[in-house]
Amino acid sequence: MSLRRFVLKRLLSIVPILFGVSVVTFALVHLTPGDPIDQMVGVNPHVTAADEAQLRARYGLDEPLWQQYLTWMGNVLTGDFGQVYSSGLDVSGIILMRLPETVVLGIFGWVFALAIAIPAGIYAAVNKGEFADTVSRFFALSGISIPNFWLGLMLILIGALIIDLWPVLPPSRQPLYHPEMLWYLVLPGITIGTAAAASIMRVMRTSMAEELNKEYVTAARAKGLPERTVVLKHVLRNSLISVVTLAATLTATLVAGSVVVEVVFNWPGLGRELIEAINAREINLIMAITLFTGVLIVIANMIADVLYAALDPRIRYE
């Protein structure tokens, strides 16, 4: 099967996956107790049960679930994600506004993770068992163990309040694509990328160390190739295969991590929006963000598969 057919096939397989994502999302949101009306009404001595029923009817929340699902799905397919109950704003408009923020932050975190993890992993593998290896493993373990929100708060404390290089709040009036925003991405980017960097580094180190023990490496060395060429040209390419897969899978971690990081750094992306939406039981918004996140992750995994094929021609797809 050619790579092109493979890509097409994978693209088609996204359709049932997304359908599954939509069903699960819808079910989870609707099985969770409470709806926006509960939240809007809260504990209010002036509002009677009849008032509440009226509100529910107004928003179509009194219809059977399957009917609500079909209505919702039908609208989603035409690009209409419904409205936010409390403000009446269009959900799709909110997503379009928030999505770039999260994507930029994710890319920054991802680049940061790779930029740290790959050289560190190579270095640790080449110096396996030595002091540098121990140090890097210590940092890898710490990186995986430290909770995001704590790291974020610590970075704010140090970066903003102690050495005062960054503000606590990113400038809210600066457009996202202004070059200056790169500076403000540093702290949240580090926070979001740290755990990913740690995992990638560990895999890089292991697979590299494994490759280094293989016969072709001995052969290459015996041929008299410089060690640098052996490591960076032959070994690296082979060890990258598992790293690429992992890095793509970690996209999910980055997106999930963005929820906490965006709240702590007041970054106006989808993650912060999701938390607010959940607190307010804004079901249309929750479903749309979850669906978008699902799409992002599915696409990231697809890219990983394709890269996997490109990196390792031995792999055949049936």
């Binding site: 708060l153 903003a160 005062d164 503000p167 606590v168 709040l169 709240v263 912060r272 938390i275």
Partner: peptide, 13 residues
């Protein structure tokens, strides 16, 4: 600024 700790940090800064 929805997060209480971040808002507190912004006041201190």
């Amino acid at each position: 600024v929805p997060d209480n700790s971040t808002r507190s940090g912004a006041l201190q800064d």
